[in-house]
Design a protein around this nucleic acid. Structure first.
Length: 534
DNA sequence: AATCGCCCCAACCGCGACCTA
DNA sequence: CTAGGTCGCGGTTGGGGCGAT
């Protein structure tokens, strides 16, 4: 086992009283047994030696550096030094505003995946980005500013919003996010090129199972431009303030090319065309208009995805179900219940007092009933004409819905794991979203703002599957029910009385008609109005 | 001028994935 | 199949810089 010792300065003052093991992964141990390895800042001489070595031998095989050069540095240290400081392609200096903006976007999308973020920032290292985030961005927490700009906080998806609220927005314990971020969630690579949406093909080797559900670009949400709503104060220092987002006038046009691609893909996938409704003036049939049938980028699991080779099993997997809370994969859990004969504990009236699994199962039950309700309504003759906007699509959707809900259906059995995030229920939502995106958008003006941002910036789509553990907090679950009743007022609060009322008017009908409460992001702490939050 | 406290960032550390014998 | 080696990633630390008092 090699020993790393600290050096106080470039003068070479070595401290031998720190017989630290080199590292836990034995990086360089084998070649450094019995030797004393330097730690601490690198000297220019050491840098020169390392540079010379890399020029001769190339990168890699870092443990051989000491052998060949006599450098008293472990391979790990050499690699780090080279990668972070000596690489010729490194870009020095402060981050540009564009880079800062990109980092924020990437972080909102990926979480603490610094290396992957660095891949989108040429010349920048993961360490740089990490330090940047940990300092410049997180200091916003101390100042009571949201980590994410108002554009993201309002326009982001519900799940993202929850994430921000729960763990990142105002100095909360970011570990709640990190837990999930380190919980095996993988996100597809997304290129941010001048803020246009250009997802790369998913890296199957790198991405895990999430690729299956939302990693495929062809299943990204199809969302036309819609009005941008915000009443959040702009942070003048916010690098994203120059997005131009937030208002309809400022909002870039919906990427028609993207939508066309999506339509084509959807047509290929489902055998029908998605009518693009630039005015999105119609409402979907039978969809709870306040429900979270948001075009959130959840991809349908109905289509087997090539490359679904590795199925990681996150400990927390939820989906937006539109009924107040994060719900587990409905059908999967229903299947569990039917398989094991599980019923919610009698003494457990609500998920708020149950454990996680119980909460999930409880919600699964609720969702099951809701879906039955939805299905009944969808097939009944009491549907108002205003609800019926595209009967053909609905018919397809309903049939497909049944297929999804049938665990044995060919459409619904694409799930390899009972907790696969790409559950059929998930697919139901996704399918409906994909079929009726425009009208659903119209029906949920608040979510509209999220999808606007998602569409505009081409990000956050895959973030949907990141479910902060904090969002399962019982308090929030409890709040969601009561908040649903206050949705109108809450909407007013967030969006402003005039706009909120107008929006509520447009959405109230179907809410009452279905009798389903919902939980939009405004049932959570108003992120952008929590400047007094500790 | 001295001290204190905060900020920043380079470097370290632990862990896990991957590869190979 | 297993163990060891290699490497990458994300979290954390510690010291220097700098401004406030």
């Amino acid at each position: 086992m090699g020993r790393c010792i600290s050096n106080e300065s470039e003068g070479g003052l070595l401290s031998t009283d720190s017989p630290l093991s080199n590292d836990g992964d034995n990086f360089g141990d084998s070649s450094n047994r019995g030797s004393i390895l330097k730690k601490g800042p690198w000297t220019t001489a050491e840098d020169a030696i390392l540079i010379d070595y890399v020029k001769k031998h190339g990168e890699g095989n870092w443990n051989a550096v000491q052998k060949h050069t006599g450098l008293s540095r472990c391979g790990k240290s050499c690699r780090l030094r080279w990668a972070n400081h000596l690489r010729p392609d490194l870009k020095k200096g402060a981050f540009t505003s564009e880079e800062e903006r990109l980092i924020i976007e990437l972080h909102a999308n990926m979480g603490n995946k610094w290396a992957r973020m660095a891949a989108h920032l040429p010349g920048r290292t993961d360490n740089e980005i990490k330090n940047y985030w940990n300092t410049r961005i997180k200091r916003r927490q101390r100042a009571g500013l949201p980590l994410y700009p108002p554009e993201l906080c309002l326009e982001g998806p519900l799940e993202n919003q929850q994430s921000l609220n729960s763990c990142a927005m105002y100095g909360g314990d970011t570990r709640s996010c990190d837990i999930l971020q380190s919980n095996g969630y993988k996100t597809p690579d997304i290129m941010f090129d001048s803020l246009t949406y250009a997802p790369k093909l998913p890296d199957i080797s790198d991405s895990g199972s999430l690729i299956n559900c939302f990693g495929c670009p062809q299943y990204y949400s199809f969302v036309p431009q819609s009005i941008g709503l915000q009443k959040c104060p702009q942070d003048p220092d916010e690098p994203m303030s120059d997005y131009g987002g937030g208002t309809a006038a400022e909002t870039p046009s919906f990427d028609r090319a993207h939508s066309d691609n999506f339509e084509n893909r959807m047509s290929q996938s489902f055998g029908f065309c998605i009518p693009y409704d630039p005015d999105h003036t119609e409402l979907p049939l039978g969809i709870n208009q306040d429900s979270h049938f948001t075009p959130n980028g959840f991809s349908s699991a109905s289509k087997p995805i090539a490359g679904a080779e590795k199925s990681e099993l996150p400990s927390l997997q939820y989906q937006v179900n539109g009924f107040d809370v994060w719900n587990p994969a409905h059908e999967s859990l229903e299947f569990i219940q039917s398989s094991i004969g599980w019923t919610p504990p009698s003494g457990c009236p609500s998920p708020s007092s149950c454990g996680l699994l119980e909460a999930l199962l409880y919600e699964a039950n609720a969702l099951s009933q809701s879906w039955n309700q939805f299905s009944d309504k969808a097939t009944s003759s009491t549907i108002s004409a205003s609800d019926i906007t595209d009967s053909s699509v609905l018919k397809t959707s309903s049939q497909e819905l049944k297929g999804y809900l049938d665990p044995l259906s060919s459409l619904g059995n694409s799930v390899g794991s009972i907790f696969n995030e790409c559950s059929p229920a998930h697919a139901v939502v996704s399918s409906l979203e994909e079929k009726l995106p425009v009208r659903i958008l119209k029906s949920e003006p608040v979510d509209q703002s999220w999808v606007l941002d998602r569409e505009r910036n081409g990000i956050l789509n895959d973030f949907d599957c990141i479910r902060p553990a904090a969002t399962l907090g019982s308090c929030w679950l409890e709040q969601s029910a009561s908040f649903a009743k206050q949705q109108a007022s809450a909407t007013d609060y967030i969006l402003g009385d005039d706009l909120g009322s107008e929006l509520n008017m447009s959405s109230g009908t179907s809410v009452s008609s279905l009798g389903l409460s919902s939980c939009t992001w405004n049932t959570m702490p108003a992120a952008c109005q929590m400047s007094d939050h500790p």
